[in-house]
Amino acid sequence: MLKGSVKDESRVYEARGRHLFRGEADYSFVFQDYNCTVEFFVSPFLVQESEIVDKMGTKKETLRLDLVGKSSEQYKGADIIVFNTGHWWTHEKTSKGEDYYQEGSNVYHELAVLEAFRKALTTWGRWVEKNVNPEKSLVFFRAFLPHISVDLLCSGGQWNSGGACDSEIEPIKNETYLTPYPPKMKVLESVLKGMTTPVTYLNITRLTDYRKDGHPSVYRKQSLSDKEKKTPLLYQDCSHWCLPGVPDSWNEILYAELLVKLNQLG
């Protein structure tokens, strides 16, 4: 989208010459005429994914709640940093928290996901306080829409049990159908309030919750057989968002906040 708005697109390129962007963990796009680089780092938990070896010699995945993601060294000096986490904390292994969360050499046999989320965000917050110079860098944290919200937006049941949203053409208008405010958001807000480094909070959770009409649904794949089309579980997608669509609103909010901050800096 950014590349499409410049005068000479040939002067925008990925620093490593990459052309495919689904299998790599980071990308760096150089806008040569603007002395600007836009980078993307995959760090879904903001803390490090790791592994341990048990007594039987078997490797097992863990999540180091006490260490920030390994990519942090690459972006700590950026002028603008936008963080996000939340969605991956709803997956089964994170929700159950059995022999998965690790601090130091200790792996918790059981740990509630909210407590693990709090520990991870606290680790992230400490890293920001130590490594980000607020006089040089603007820090943003974009909120998230948890899985449970999108599950409940679909008509006819949840998205993974027969629900569908391909017939939805308008947002939710009755607020009683909106989901309760996510507990993880309250944890995030508590951590942000305790920080001294300024972080602009982009809370897009509630506004996105209205948009039951914004999912890819059956339209994400056009080459389905008639048999597949009769089995909604094979193609119904109510947990992601169309582009163009809802994520553009998130970007507009980020852009507006950037303009405000830059005006304040003079």
Rank of each mutant, 00 (worst) to 15 (best):
residue 14 E to F: 04
residue 38 V to Y: 06
residue 236 Q to I: 08
residue 265 L to T: 05
residue 225 S to F: 10
residue 187 V to F: 03
residue 93 K to M: 06
residue 109 H to W: 10
residue 214 G to H: 08
residue 171 P to E: 11
residue 193 K to E: 03
residue 197 T to I: 01
residue 61 E to Q: 13
residue 252 E to K: 15
residue 74 Q to G: 06
residue 97 G to D: 04
residue 6 V to M: 07
residue 230 K to D: 13
residue 24 E to N: 07
residue 254 L to C: 02
residue 150 V to R: 09
residue 154 C to F: 08
residue 223 S to D: 02
residue 16 R to W: 06
residue 83 F to E: 00
residue 256 A to H: 02
residue 256 A to R: 03
residue 68 V to G: 03
residue 43 S to D: 14
residue 251 N to C: 13
residue 25 A to Y: 07
residue 65 L to A: 03
residue 52 I to L: 08
residue 154 C to N: 12
residue 54 D to T: 07
residue 34 Y to T: 08
residue 37 T to C: 13
residue 82 V to T: 05
residue 180 P to E: 12
residue 131 N to P: 00
residue 53 V to A: 07
residue 74 Q to F: 13
residue 13 Y to L: 06
residue 142 R to P: 01
residue 22 R to Q: 03
residue 262 L to N: 00
residue 80 I to Q: 00
residue 72 S to F: 15
residue 180 P to Q: 10
residue 243 L to P: 00
residue 219 Y to T: 13
residue 13 Y to Q: 03
residue 262 L to F: 15
residue 89 W to E: 05
residue 169 I to V: 13
residue 99 D to Y: 12
residue 204 I to Y: 00
residue 254 L to R: 02
residue 72 S to R: 06
residue 134 P to D: 11
residue 74 Q to L: 15
residue 198 P to N: 03
residue 246 V to Y: 01
residue 201 Y to D: 01
residue 48 Q to L: 09
